[in-house]
């Protein structure tokens, strides 16, 4: 390869890194300019500086961390319960035909119903309690993880199972090691999808009525015409789910450690 070509490649690489670093600041700058230019209504479309002030106020008022905690709690606990249930039932339906015949038709009927559609009945069942919000997140996460695990278990290399059988592997170890780890690459994909689903359902859960939470704060701000606060809330939610997705991706890469 010629040095010229090499240099050109490096220059192009540097340029794209530079442009990438400028992407978000440029967007914020253009937004600020447009919002201040009076082309648009600044009350409905506040500039980033107003949003930043609103976010600082939110933090200073002490409500921010309460809201963050409330939302994080719902997402995390709901995710953990839903995925644990999904993995356990997926192992059972994937491995035991009878359990699958019993549960799979039911799950396949319930799975396509968007979790948000359950908000009205959840309010009737749980009122505005925390349990109702957890229920929605659990419900949203469960089916995805169940299906991923179910398929993963069925795709476990039969040769591995036979080899394990020939070595005298006890039934419990067969399920907890050979089947679970054999299905792990599929399960991890299901879990990653479940991370974003848990945020979708969190929005539905908090809009349905809550006393704290990031989406709840967005809704209150909307009712008071505090558009800066609304956008600040959106930014916080975006950042939160971005961090969650990225950290899960990093964990997922290490979860299948033998690759």
């Amino acid at each position: 390869m010629s040095t010229g070509g090499h240099n050109r490649a490096t220059t192009a690489g540097r340029l794209s890194v530079l442009v990438g670093a400028l992407s978000v600041p440029a967007f914020v700058g253009v937004w600020e300019l447009i919002a201040r230019s009076r082309i648009v209504n600044a009350v409905l479309f506040p500039p980033p500086s107003t949003v930043a002030v609103a976010v600082l106020d939110w933090i200073h008022s002490g409500q921010f961390f309460g809201d963050l905690w409330a939302s994080l709690f719902r997402v995390t606990v709901g995710f953990l319960i839903g995925t644990t249930g999904g993995i356990m039932l997926g192992m059972l339906t994937g491995r035991f035909r009878l359990v699958s015949s019993l549960l799979s038709p039911l799950f396949h009927i319930l799975r396509p119903i968007p979790p948000i559609a359950f908000v009205p009945i959840v309010i009737l069942w749980f009122g505005l309690s925390e349990a109702g919000k957890l229920f929605l997140v659990v419900w949203g996460v469960f089916f995805t993880v169940w299906l991923a695990t179910h398929i993963g278990v069925q795709k476990v290399d039969r040769g591995l199972v036979r080899a394990a059988l020939m070595l005298g592997t006890p039934r419990r170890q067969m399920l907890s090691e050979i089947i679970l780890l054999g299905a792990l690459p599929y399960i991890v994909v299901g879990l990653r999808t479940a991370v974003s689903i848990s945020f979708y359902t969190l929005v539905a859960a908090e809009l349905a009525g809550a006393f704290a939470g990031i989406v709840y704060r967005i809704e209150i701000a909307q009712q008071n015409m505090q558009t800066g606060q609304v956008m600040g809330g959106l930014a916080a939610l975006g950042l939160l789910s971005f961090v969650a997705d990225r950290s899960f991706a990093a964990i997922a890469e290490r979860a299948v450690w033998w690759r």
């Binding site: 080899a163 020939m166 780890l181 450690w257 033998w258």
Partner: peptide, 17 residues
């Protein structure tokens, strides 16, 4: 299957983990 009988398959079928 019994542990006093060992088997080697056409594919190694080693536990990848």
């Amino acid at each position: 299957p019994r542990p006093d009988i060992g088997m080697v398959f056409q594919q190694p079928h080693l536990f990848p983990w």
